[in-house]
Simulated scan of single mutants.
Amino acid sequence: MRVYIGTGGYSNDDWLGLLYPAGTRSTEYLGIYARHFDVVELNSSFYGIPGLKAFAGMAARSAGRVRFTVKLHQVFTHARTPQDSDFDQMLQSPEPLREAGLMGPYLAQFPYSFHRTPENRRYLGMLAERFAGHELAVEFRHGSWDRPEVRAGMAEYGLLWVSPDYPPVGGMPEPQLHVTGEVGYLRLHGRNGGTWWEGTSAAERHDYRYSRAELEGWADQVAAALDAGEAEELYILFENTTQGHALHNIPVLREALEARGVPVWHPDPDAPDPEGAGVDGHQASLF
């Protein structure tokens, strides 16, 4: 199993002084990020699908070091009114990532209001057909989808089940690693139950730092999946990027996985900088 570990997004200004040296321009973030992680979940595409030129720039700034998972635009998951032009743009724009060998799965993140109803099941089937030939990972936030028969159907249609770690507030899928194909996808949102429903922003909902014991629990599940030969690749994305929580959690998870015989990628401090990756040649010292 090849395990990729990274974060949901990389354009986090509150990482200045943590991952990014003070004074780093936002255009330099990705080059620095690429020195420390081997996958990033592109969340900006939820709000506006980048064009070919933008994706080509990402491939160049990452120096071929980072896989990208690409979140579907909200028209696919929240409005659920995509037009043919939306499908065309969503499928064609990341082509520079494919050409560079950096494209990971697409991510469809459905809201809690997306229950398991006949209408929504048909909609999901339509998405599977339109994205046939591409890896599409699906995250459900309503617990009605958390059933073995749903995962069996997803496996049949070539869809990837997203295993989520949510706060224990009830009504959502359980924190269990499930794999429905050759690729697994794990999203760690944090367990801040006090802000999950009441929070006014994603930053508040994801304001949580995992304990070592909590991360070792996930390491146990990943190691079990490896032993069972359940997947060839596993993407682990930390969404708790607020205040740099993810930056502190990832080294702990790497250590826990290696202790269980799961090989992981580590940053190479001696690797040459991608063009524009640093500020006056200096790198952050978090790792």
Score class of each variant (00 low, 15 high):
residue 1 M to I: 11
residue 2 R to E: 15
residue 3 V to T: 13
residue 5 I to G: 12
residue 6 G to C: 07
residue 6 G to T: 10
residue 6 G to R: 01
residue 7 T to N: 09
residue 7 T to W: 02
residue 8 G to L: 11
residue 10 Y to H: 15
residue 11 S to I: 07
residue 11 S to C: 12
residue 13 D to H: 13
residue 13 D to Q: 13
residue 15 W to M: 13
residue 16 L to M: 12
residue 16 L to Q: 15
residue 17 G to A: 06
residue 18 L to F: 03
residue 19 L to T: 00
residue 19 L to S: 00
residue 23 G to P: 13
residue 26 S to Y: 09
residue 30 L to N: 12
residue 32 I to K: 00
residue 32 I to M: 00
residue 34 A to P: 14
residue 38 D to L: 01
residue 38 D to H: 07
residue 39 V to R: 04
residue 46 F to N: 10
residue 46 F to R: 11
residue 47 Y to W: 04
residue 47 Y to R: 01
residue 47 Y to Q: 03
residue 49 I to Q: 15
residue 53 K to C: 01
residue 59 A to P: 15
residue 59 A to R: 11
residue 65 R to V: 02
residue 65 R to Y: 02
residue 66 V to Y: 02
residue 68 F to I: 08
residue 68 F to G: 14
residue 71 K to Y: 01
residue 71 K to I: 01
residue 77 T to N: 08
residue 77 T to K: 04
residue 78 H to C: 04
residue 79 A to K: 11
residue 79 A to E: 14
residue 80 R to G: 00
residue 91 L to I: 15
residue 93 S to R: 11
residue 93 S to T: 11
residue 96 P to F: 07
residue 97 L to P: 13
residue 97 L to W: 08
residue 98 R to F: 07
residue 101 G to P: 14
residue 101 G to K: 11
residue 102 L to Q: 15
residue 102 L to R: 05
residue 103 M to Q: 13
residue 104 G to C: 03
residue 105 P to L: 11
residue 106 Y to V: 07
residue 106 Y to K: 04
residue 107 L to S: 05
residue 114 F to C: 12
residue 116 R to M: 01
residue 118 P to C: 03
residue 118 P to T: 03
residue 120 N to T: 08
residue 124 L to A: 06
residue 126 M to C: 06
residue 128 A to K: 09
residue 128 A to L: 09
residue 128 A to H: 11
residue 130 R to C: 07
residue 133 G to Q: 08
residue 136 L to V: 11
residue 137 A to L: 06
residue 138 V to I: 15
residue 140 F to N: 10
residue 143 G to W: 06
residue 146 D to F: 07
residue 150 V to H: 05
residue 156 E to C: 01
residue 157 Y to N: 10
residue 161 W to Q: 10
residue 162 V to R: 05
residue 163 S to R: 02
residue 165 D to S: 09
residue 174 E to N: 10
residue 175 P to C: 02
residue 175 P to A: 04
residue 175 P to N: 03
residue 177 L to Q: 01
residue 177 L to K: 01
residue 178 H to F: 14
residue 187 R to Q: 03
residue 187 R to D: 08
residue 191 R to G: 13
residue 192 N to T: 04
residue 194 G to C: 03
residue 194 G to N: 10
residue 194 G to L: 06
residue 195 T to V: 04
residue 196 W to A: 08
residue 200 T to R: 14
residue 204 E to T: 08
residue 204 E to K: 14
residue 205 R to E: 07
residue 207 D to M: 04
residue 210 Y to V: 05
residue 214 E to F: 01
residue 215 L to K: 08
residue 217 G to W: 00
residue 219 A to C: 13
residue 219 A to R: 04
residue 220 D to A: 04
residue 221 Q to P: 11
residue 221 Q to S: 00
residue 222 V to P: 12
residue 226 L to F: 04
residue 227 D to Y: 00
residue 228 A to N: 10
residue 231 A to N: 09
residue 234 L to A: 07
residue 234 L to E: 08
residue 237 L to N: 15
residue 241 T to P: 09
residue 241 T to Y: 03
residue 243 Q to E: 15
residue 244 G to N: 07
residue 245 H to L: 10
residue 246 A to H: 15
residue 247 L to T: 12
residue 248 H to Q: 10
residue 253 L to A: 10
residue 256 A to L: 03
residue 257 L to W: 10
residue 263 P to K: 09
residue 263 P to F: 07
residue 264 V to T: 15
residue 267 P to F: 05
residue 269 P to C: 11
residue 270 D to R: 14
residue 270 D to E: 15
residue 272 P to I: 00
residue 273 D to E: 14
residue 276 G to D: 00
residue 281 G to L: 07
residue 283 Q to H: 14
residue 286 L to N: 15
residue 287 F to P: 13
